[in-house]
């Protein structure tokens, strides 16, 4: 068992790197939840709608727990959750826009949610105590997300050529921003590996590719040939762009601001 991290031992850049890591995980979870919530009533069956509704709530619960960790680093979670503009969100770029069809959300469930889980797994194995204690339960809940994702991915891959084509296109579109996010190897990412807070981007990317290799092959996508997108933004730990304004208004809870209860 690795010795626990004492945050007081981190220097300024180290604190910044840990804040960035937590924030990008939390923001990605929150926007993943928004994308799931788009399908509460449009899923192919009542059961699928109930499942994705529950998964949206899981993501928001996980996001809330991750945002709360920022208190350890002298950041106020309430401000972070409810007051930032879209341009300050650090969520993985693959979630910037809503998914227009069921194949798209299944691809996101598979390609994006799995990447977030792999990043969380690395975080849970590190020296930061809050991650060690809180993340394993998230990962246990995520096992059901992964099961549903794989079942639907296989189902669509084995159905009509049109459906398979939609799944293939969505997979190809989502992989580059996801690989850039998971494979980040800049100074802040390296600092977190050096401090033992998380695992290397290379090892996490290998785990990720191994988990999805057989699945994406079903739609003729070779995950080993997929490449990360460019335009990495070190401050936001993501590629270019930002989530659409509608998603951010919902994420911030703008409509219910007057009723905010904490």
């Amino acid at each position: 068992m690795k010795e626990l991290l004492d945050i007081r031992d981190l220097d300024g850049p180290g604190i910044g790197a840990l804040r960035r890591l937590i924030l990008t995980l939390a923001d990605s979870k929150r926007i993943m939840g928004i994308r799931y919530s788009d399908w509460l009533l449009g899923a192919p069956s009542i059961e699928a709608g109930i499942a994705i509704s529950s998964m949206a709530q899981d993501e928001w619960g996980h996001a809330r727990l991750l945002y709360a960790m920022l208190k350890d680093l002298d950041l106020e979670p309430l401000t972070i959750e409810h007051e930032r503009p879209a341009e300050e969100y650090t969520s993985v770029g693959a979630l910037d826009s809503a998914f227009e069809h069921w194949a798209g959300i299944v691809a996101a469930m598979t390609v994006v949610d799995e990447a977030i889980s792999v990043a969380l797994l690395g975080f849970s194995r590190g020296r930061y105590e809050a991650a060690r204690t809180r993340v394993p339960k998230m990962l246990a809940e995520e096992e059901f997300h992964a099961s549903l994702a794989k079942a639907w991915y296989r189902r669509i891959a084995g159905s009509s050529s049109k459906a398979r084509s939609l799944l293939r296109d969505s997979t190809k579109e989502l992989l580059p921003p996801v690989l850039a996010w998971l494979g980040a190897d800049d100074a802040a990412a390296k600092a977190m590996v050096t401090e033992g807070v998380t695992e290397s981007s290379q090892s996490m990317t290998e785990v990720y590719r191994a988990r999805l290799r057989d699945l994406t092959a079903l739609v003729e996508v070779n995950i080993d040939q997929a490449q990360p997108c460019g335009g990495w933004d070190e401050d936001r730990a993501r590629g270019p762009g930002c989530p659409d304004e509608d998603a951010i208004e919902r994420a911030r809870g703008d409509r219910n601001r007057a009723l905010l209860v904490e």
């Binding site: 499942a51 509704s53 059901f144 079942a151 189902r155």
Partner: peptide, 19 residues
């Protein structure tokens, strides 16, 4: 009960429906 396309979906639907 749940309606599902296969066993794997049934597992998840059951867990998420009767939670």
């Amino acid at each position: 009960y749940v309606d599902a396309l296969d066993d794997e979906m049934a597992r998840v639907y059951a867990w998420k429906t009767y939670d």
